[in-house]
Design a protein around this nucleic acid. Structure first.
Lengths: 202, 202
DNA sequence: TCCAAAATATGAGCTTTACTCACATTTGCA
DNA sequence: TGCAAATGTGAGTAAAGCTCATATTTTGGA
């Protein structure tokens, strides 16, 4: 994956520092003016490197967006994995899932740029499959837990439900941060209720 | 809204015919090569008009995408309104809602270009608010029915749930048509079960 | 320490694409 | 028929992604 994402593995210290600086500036630009505002020339200028140099780190604009999205996805995945880690019963599960969603929502509220990064992914034809792939990974985390807690339930049904619940969780977060705070809170509560009811009824 | 979408109201017959032709060709291009493939010059050439002429019908590319999306949204809204029209009880409601989702899914399967048009909307910063606006309209249709059937339930709670259910319905359809047919079917079934359970438990 | 090769940096310039504008043509109407 | 309004035209402009020939810096061995 990194082969297509990065033109060259940075071996020198300066390289690694610049790579972080590029991503930090890209995030700032997107956060400030929206995902459309990611201009490669401006990104180079802000980072204090030449346009040619920027293209030694990333083969194209798509790769920059991909790297940003990958960071968000890793954060999400860690959050989900940790939130579900110490669950031993279905009662625990409902509580843990609710807390997990709250944490997830808090991350979205604290870093609304996540939504813009997602928009940038959608805008890029080559990256659109990322969303489904990430939902699959998150669904697999949830599905594994459910299969352990509910060994009697049809695994295929668990897989479909887990994938859907995680995918719709992402969609809920993006909707929630797109509306006023109070309404967003209510939407997240509705989602939690709906998801928990469905997962516990499996 | 049409003021910003269309440069000039077509008053002559030729104009109206060309406008339809433009949108038909734009749909075809997106269906064929994906939402990134909508080149204004190629759209003009395919339609058999000059690039300058194209820009007399639409002020910019965003307006073309907006018009395409508006068409899809109108179709959706009609489908939803009709599907919920003759519902008199909560038992009817569950059946009607399930049938509505099946119809909606069938439309997505028959015209997968809808997904690409949606991607084109997401790719355009100026149009991103369309999605929430459309979910609100659809949510209002569903919410009105629910308020009539369940007068005792807190209307605010109904509104939040209805908005969420419709928004997540769209997300489910896009996910379902992005995976293999059998898996997509299972996802839609999961969504129906989840949504109906939540709506009837209000 | 010094040098050659590998890694990294540079920015002028090429390509593509959205969009404009000055001018030409067609249509509606008296 | 003749004029004004509507519509059509496409060469040209601007902006952005991206390349490449060349320059500079770093590394590791003699």
């Amino acid at each position: 994956m990194n082969d297509t994402q990065m033109r060259r593995a940075p071996s020198q210290k300066r390289s690694r520092e610049r790579l972080d600086a590029i991503l930090a500036n890209a995030t700032e630009m997107i956060a400030h003016t929206g995902s459309d505002a990611l201009r490669m020339s401006e990104l180079a200028q802000r980072t204090g490197i030449s346009i040619g140099s920027l293209y030694q780190y990333f083969p194209d604009k798509s790769a920059v967006v991909h790297a940003l999205a990958e960071r968000c996805n890793e954060e999400s995945r860690a959050c989900i994995a940790e939130g579900l880690s110490a669950v031993a019963s279905m009662e625990d599960f409902a509580i843990a899932f609710g807390a997990l969603i709250d944490t997830y929502y808090a991350i979205f509220l604290a870093e609304p740029v996540i939504r813009d990064i997602w928009s940038a992914v959608q805008a890029d034809g080559a990256l659109r499959a990322m969303e489904v792939a990430e939902s699959r990974r998150n669904g697999a985390l949830l599905g594994a837990q459910l299969k352990a807690l509910r060994p009697a339930v049809n695994p295929a049904k668990i897989d479909a439900t887990a994938l859907l619940v995680m995918h719709l969780g992402e969609a809920t977060m993006r909707l929630a941060v797109s509306v006023e705070r109070a309404e967003g809170d209510a939407l997240v509560e509705s989602y939690k209720r709906m998801a928990i009811r469905d997962l516990t009824a499996l």
